[in-house]
Structure formats: structure tokens, C-alpha cells
Design a protein around this nucleic acid. Structure first.
Length: 274
DNA sequence: ACTATGTCCTGCGAGC
DNA sequence: TGCTCGCAGGACATAG
């Protein structure tokens, strides 16, 4: 499932491959169920636009669009195409002759002759267009310690839930929340407000570190995640607790436990994490 | 203002 | 072998 490192990897790959290309036409399937925009709005916003850049914001992929025609000093506002991959969404750059995969919900024909396709079996992904996208939460890689600590102040919710709350931090999902909590030696059910400043320092550092390591590894390939070139990431090999229920803790050999927090499976070491 | 829970959706793997 | 069933999860809706 694409979280921050996977989305970062995908956005970088797409930026290399499609930035500078022009969207000639757009086909949209019946229900990509865009959040704020109808299929017509999306198609209208994308058609004959230049993709000036692709980048990540939180778990969102942001395509910056510009008018492709030189002429008329464009007073028209530039728009951004926002793609959220949900659980199983993927964006693929394909030769037009290649077979259209099942669950393809959008196809963009590019001036270069290639196609950019959005495929999403589970349909949790979302497409939308907006003038200026702003993530509701803070970027975990950029946030200062004081801002980080303030996010959790007075919150009774389990720290695991708080980490997953995109209004607080943008981009942290189930895998990296578990991995960061393990590295910081904090149990997922701990009330966020109960974390000491030292806990918070370790947590912020662990989160940044695990996200950066995962980006360097090209993300975690779980289920069918691949990047823009179809390459798998390999950070899943470095997971210390996620998906390791019953297996020995890599530090103390105690079996890793799995519990449910906020309806999400959460993995931790009962010996190493307090 | 927070927090907790249910919902969406399909593929896959466990279990019989 | 082949079937059913339950689980996986991000973000929103709804209820408390």
C-alpha cells in the first residue's frame, strides 16, 4: 500500500518520465469517484495541458499543469491534478498498444505517443483537480520538534491512531507507523498525551529515519506495488515488526505481537516497546 | 473539539 | 482440488 516513501518514489519516477509531455486527450472510466471534481471537470482540466512537474505531497501525487499553447498571456489560473492511490492504485506509463489492464479507470494520451494510465482494483484511489493543493497535515520529514510535540499534546487517542491521522501528519500509513514506533520503543496503544518529550524526540527521529531509509530503498513492495518503471521496492525486507506476527523480535527474540488499534493491525514487541 | 467505529472495494489466502 | 469466508486498509461519514 503506497505510503509516503512509495508515493515519493512513484512521483519522482513520473516526474522523470512525463514532465514536459502534453496531455492530448483523456478517457475516464465510470467511477474513479473523484473527491471534488466530476469526470467532466477533470477531463477539461487535463486536456491539452503541459505537465510541468510531478511531485509528492503527503500521500498525494501532484501534477502541476500549464497551458501548452504559447500565445495568449494566460490569465487563466493553473490547475493541479491530484492523484491519491488509496490501497491499490497505480499510475503506469504505457505504449498505446499495450493491453489495458483490468480496473483501468483513466487513460491520458500524451503527445509523446505514450499513455499514462490509472489502474486501481480496489477503488480506494481518488482523482481530483484543484488550483492549489495543500495537505491538511505537516510533512513528517520537515516538521520541527516543537511542532511535532504540539501535534500530540492533550490527545487521548492511541499514538498509533494519531500517527495515522492525516490532519496531523501527512503521509504516514500503517507500515511506517508500526516501524517508527518499534524503533522509538513505544507501544502503539500508548495515549498520545502520555508521551514524554524524550519519547517524542525518539519518535520523530525514528519516523524520519525509517521514511528516509524506505525512500532510498524505493519503497516497500507489498501486494502489487511497483514504481513508475514497474520496479519493485525492497524496503519490505527491512521491516522489523510489520507483518512479522509471531516471529522473533530482531532485537530480543521475543515473538512480535499483533493487536488491533483503531481498526488497523498493529505490530510491536512487548519486550522492547513500553 | 475530539474520539471511536463503520463503510467502501476486490483479491487473495487460510481452512475445510 | 475447489469452494467459501474473512481479512487487508486510507479516508471519509456518522455517531457519541
Amino acid at each position: 500500500m503506497p505510503e509516503l516513501p512509495e508515493v515519493e518514489t512513484i512521483a519522482r519516477g513520473l516526474n522523470q518520465r512525463v514532465a514536459g509531455d502534453v496531455i492530448e486527450s483523456v478517457w475516464l472510466g465510470s467511477k474513479p469517484e473523484p473527491l471534488k471534481s466530476s469526470a467532466q471537470e477533470i477531463a477539461a482540466a487535463l486536456e491539452s495541458k503541459l505537465i510541468s512537474s510531478v511531485r509528492r505531497v503527503g500521500k498525494h501525487i501532484v501534477f502541476a499543469l500549464a497551458h501548452s499553447k504559447n500565445g495568449a498571456s494566460n490569465s487563466a489560473k493553473e490547475t493541479q491534478w491530484i492523484v491519491h492511490l488509496g490501497m491499490t492504485g497505480s499510475l503506469r506509463v504505457c505504449p498505446p498498444a499495450s493491453e489495458v489492464a483490468k480496473h483501468t479507470h483513466a487513460i491520458l494520451k500524451l503527445a509523446s505517443g505514450r499513455e499514462l494510465r490509472f489502474v486501481d482494483p480496489r477503488r480506494f484511489g481518488r482523482l481530483s483537480v484543484i488550483e492549489k493543493f495543500k495537505a491538511p497535515g505537516s510533512e513528517p520529514l520537515d516538521i520541527s520538534f516543537e511542532d511535532f510535540a504540539a501535534l500530540f499534546h492533550g490527545r487521548k487517542t492511541p499514538i498509533k491512531s494519531a500517527l495515522l491521522n492525516q490532519k496531523l501528519l501527512s503521509g504516514v500509513g500503517n507500515i511506517y507507523a508500526d516501524e517508527a514506533l518499534f524503533r522509538a520503543k513505544i507501544r502503539p496503544r500508548r495515549r498520545a498525551s502520555s508521551l514524554t518529550r524524550d519519547d517524542l524526540r525518539r519518535l520523530r527521529a525514528a519516523l524520519k529515519k525509517v521514511l528516509q531509509e524506505a525512500i532510498r530503498a524505493g519503497g516497500s513492495s507489498i501486494s502489487d506495488y511497483v514504481d513508475a518503471d514497474g520496479e519493485e521496492g525492497f524496503f519490505q525486507l527491512k521491516h522489523r515488526v510489520y507483518g512479522r506476527e509471531g516471529k522473533p523480535c530482531l532485537v530480543c527474540k521475543m515473538p512480535v505481537k499483533r493487536i488491533v488499534v483503531a481498526g488497523r493491525s498493529s505490530h510491536y514487541c512487548p519486550h522492547c516497546q513500553m
